[in-house]
Structures are given as C-alpha cells and as structure tokens.
Computed example of a mutant assay.
Amino acid sequence: MVKSIANAVQAVTSEIEDVRAQIRTLTETIEGLESALPSIEEAEAKLSRIIDDLAGKFGPDLYAVTAAEATSAQFQINVEGNYRFGPLMAWLFGDALKEAYGRVIRERLGAGIPEAERQKRLAAARAKRLQLEIREEAIIAEAEAAGLDILRRGDADPAVVLGMVEA
C-alpha cells in the first residue's frame, strides 16, 4: 500500500511538473512575441509617421520674416529660442531622413513579425497557457482532496486559482 501511495504521489508530481514546464515554455514564447521586432514594412511606416508628426510640430515664425522691423538676428533668436532642431530637421529634410533611416531599418532589422500575425500567435499562446493553468489547478485541487499539498506557482492566474475561469 505504501508503494502505491508513493507511486500516486510520484505520478501527480510528474504530471504537475510537466504542465508547469509547458506553462514556462508558453510564457517564454509570449514574452518573445511581445518583444519581437515588427516587420520592415511596419517599421518604415512607423518611422514615416514619426517624422511627419515631428515635422508638424515645427511652425516657422513668419513674423520674423514678414515684419518690417525684423532682422536676421531676431530670426536666429526665434529659431534658436523657440524650436528644437528635431522638428526643424524633419520639416526641412523629412524625405531624406525617411530614406536614411529606412536604409538602416532594412539593413539591421531582419525579419520581424507583422502585427496581425503577432496578435494571432499571442492569442493562441495565451489561450493554450490558460488551458494549461486550468489543468494545473485541477491537478492541485484533486491532490488536495486526496490530502497531498502542492504549492501553487507565484505567478498563477488568480482567476484560475479562484475557479472564475472555465475550460
């Protein structure tokens, strides 16, 4: 009888360790997907939006060039005093900046993951992890009912532990 109890404890321990290993693997997959680089096309589109937004923040001081009493010194003071160079550079050289940074993106980025694909893979991995966490909690509850204490993971989903999520 003692041997059968030991075998049962070993079986439960082995099963919980297997489920937890799968949860760890999926968690690493999710973290990798969350931090994965975007596709080159998406990175270039984002770069274009950033440069356009930055250029839109520059508004040349027309008073300095249209007022009768305006001087070149006043124009320089206004530009230096009121504007950072990023918006000015984007306003003046936006297309050149997009091309230069675009080359860097194409050379260094490598194959990223398109956002739609990333979201699809994240949803699948999160759903699989949730199913594994539900299975893990079922194993723990069954073991507790048999008098065996199994500690829960510190990062276990509270909704699963409290039985608020169904398979």
Rank of each mutant, 00 (worst) to 15 (best):
A145R: 11
L132K: 03
Y63C: 09
G112H: 05
Q74S: 09
D95T: 00
A64H: 05
V161T: 12
S72Q: 14
A36S: 14
A68Q: 05
D157E: 14
R108K: 12
I40P: 00
A45H: 09
A145V: 09
D18L: 14
L109P: 01
G94F: 00
A146F: 09
N78V: 14
L132V: 01
G154T: 06
I139T: 08
A146N: 08
L26M: 05
L132E: 02
V9W: 06
P158H: 02
P38A: 12
D95N: 02
R135N: 02
I50G: 02
A141F: 07
S35M: 09
A124K: 15
A138C: 06
A45C: 07
A146M: 09
L33Y: 06
L162D: 11
G59R: 12
T71N: 08
F85H: 15
A156M: 13
A96P: 00
R108I: 03
T71K: 13
R106M: 03
Y83Q: 06
G81R: 15
N78W: 11
I105A: 02
I23K: 06
E15P: 03
G59P: 02
E136L: 12
L162E: 15
Y101H: 11
A145E: 07
V65I: 14
F75H: 09
T66E: 05
E133Y: 00
A11F: 04
E142V: 07
A127S: 13
A96N: 02
A138Q: 13
P60E: 10
L88Y: 14
Q131N: 06
L122V: 08
T27E: 13
R152I: 00
E44L: 11
E80G: 11
R103A: 09
P38S: 15
E31K: 12
L37Q: 10
I113L: 15
D95C: 01
I140N: 01
A111T: 14
F58Q: 07
K46P: 00
R126K: 15
I77H: 15
I150C: 04
Q76V: 11
G94R: 01
E28S: 10
A6R: 14
E17K: 14
D155I: 04
L26S: 10
F93P: 00
M89Y: 10
I23D: 04
R84W: 07
L47G: 02
D52G: 08
E142K: 13
N82F: 05
A55H: 03
L33K: 12
G59K: 15
D155G: 04
